[in-house]
Simulated assay, not measured.
Amino acid sequence: MIRYALKCPQGHGFESWFQSAAAFDALKAAGHVACPECGDAKVEKSLMAPSIGTASKAPPSDREKVIADLRRHVEANSDYVGMNFAAEARRMHDGDAPSRSIHGEARLDEARQLIEEGIPVAPLPFVPTRRTN
């Protein structure tokens, strides 16, 4: 994906994302790129600074610290059940397994089904440690 800063002949500036430079050119040639303010399709790319990432040695942000703390807490206070998360959550909810804190992985359709059945689940903002290198 590529983001372009664009401008119409009336001076209205805006940004838009495209699959590639070729995709932008094809859409523009077909008249599908237009100014959102005035509708003019004579849009041109304008000068824009490239997006540059921060140095890898930058201190972690507050959000990263909170997520790291959450991960440590979850992993220390719950059982990792891997891809069996949906089945184990359902067994606990039905009384077929002892109730305890668990974490693991579930497909989106499995998670939706658990929620529809009234089984309390929540996504975690990290990948379990056991799945990372």
Rank of each mutant, 00 (worst) to 15 (best):
R90Y: 12
I2G: 12
H12D: 15
E88R: 08
A22E: 15
G13M: 06
R107F: 01
M83F: 02
N77K: 14
T54W: 01
A26I: 14
V74L: 01
P120F: 07
A106R: 00
R100P: 05
D109C: 05
S16T: 09
D25H: 01
K57W: 08
A106T: 00
D40T: 05
H32D: 14
G118T: 10
A89D: 09
K57Y: 13
A55R: 02
K57Q: 14
A34R: 00
K57C: 11
G31K: 02
R112D: 04
S16Y: 09
A86T: 02
D40M: 05
V127K: 03
P9W: 04
E116I: 10
A97C: 09
C8G: 09
P120K: 12
C8K: 14
H32L: 12
K42Y: 06
F126I: 09
N133S: 10
C35T: 07
D69K: 12
G53Y: 01
P9H: 07
A106W: 00
Q19P: 02
E44F: 10
W17S: 11
K57H: 13
P59K: 14
E15K: 01
A58D: 02
I67R: 05
S46K: 11
A97Y: 13
E75I: 08
S20I: 08
V81G: 06
R107W: 04
K42N: 15
S20C: 08
L108E: 02
F85M: 00
K65A: 14
